[in-house]
Amino acid sequence: MNSSATIPVGISACLLGLEVRHDKGHKHSRYCTGVLSRYFQFRSLCPEMGAGLSAPRKAMHLAEQGGELRMITTDGRRDYTDLMQDFITRTMPSLAPLRGYILMAKSPSCGMERIRVYNDDGNVQHRDASGLFAAALQTHYPLMPLEEEGRLNDDTLRENFIERVFLYDDWCQLREQGLTAQRLIDFHSRHKFQLLAHCQKTYRQLGPLLSDLKSRPLEDIAEEYIHALMVAMKKRVSRGAHVNTLQHLAGFLREGLSDTDRALINEQIEAYLREEVPLIVPMTLLRGGMRKVPQPYLEKQGYLSPYPDDLGLRNRV
């Protein structure tokens, strides 16, 4: 993975401090602009402004009319659904280079989930919709990692999203270079311990899938593989799953390390399981062991360095 280059990631424009909201305000995310911008090259969009609306403008919400979601002003006087759908149709193809997207929560255009849907009487019917733009993103780019900015305040969700962005970037680089059997095997080899941590069931399924790459067209196998992988990567990793993965990795170093070094690594893995230390502690000891016992196979593992260390994500999980 090329972590020295910035990765193209979409973002709701208000999160960059642009005054594009209905009240001509913004929702500047200092974490995005101050931390993630070191590694993400943000492409900002405000779907409502892109659809031709002004700022300020009437507040809008989603309403269900005739079995269809419509984006209308809260006073019910204007319907902007067609303008939004036209913007979506024009814009979606240009978003293919993106490796992820950070969305503004609760928005009838950008909200990823839990968006309220109203009936004609102005009462809430349900709260499980996605904004029109966010829903289109999920449909057009099902592999692309999406997250709401507010959820990035959760240590686990933040780490999960950023890990998926870097992994998806690696996959996109593979596709740009050209899909070959060897590149697919190499990709799986780099990320297999990340997969093991996220979902043992999928880990056990994808190995056999790649065991005979001549059984079906390579493109079909690759598509089945990456869809299963990205679904698995959305799952939160439990401490027990991390411990299992750490112990697998430590097993590769068993023969070359001293009894003292092995004991220290195992002690800190157990301390992590007891929630006494963060994940970075046993991870750092494993890396130290690899300097003493060179393991080319382990050095390529994305699990050990899924993103740049200075993001500090494993100090909090």
Rank of each mutant, 00 (worst) to 15 (best):
S211A: 11
H188D: 05
P278C: 04
D155E: 13
S238R: 10
I185L: 15
E163I: 11
T156Y: 12
Y225D: 03
L264D: 11
Y225T: 02
H198E: 00
V237P: 00
L196R: 07
L218D: 00
D170Y: 12
H248Q: 13
R175Y: 09
L152P: 03
A181F: 07
F187S: 02
T156G: 08
L167E: 03
R239E: 03
Q173D: 14
L209F: 07
R274D: 11
I265E: 02
P208C: 02
P217H: 05
E176S: 15
L218K: 02
E224K: 09
R164K: 08
G240V: 08
Q173Y: 09
H227C: 09
F252W: 09
E224P: 02
F161K: 01
E224H: 04
H198G: 00
P278R: 00
Y272G: 01
H242E: 09
Q200H: 12
V243Y: 03
E267K: 14
R239M: 05
Q177E: 14
R151V: 13
L249K: 00
G256Y: 07
E270N: 11
Y168K: 01
Y272T: 05
S189E: 10
L174N: 02
L206R: 01
E267A: 13
L184N: 00
L229I: 08
S258P: 01
L152K: 01
K201N: 12
L195Q: 01
F166E: 08
D186L: 10
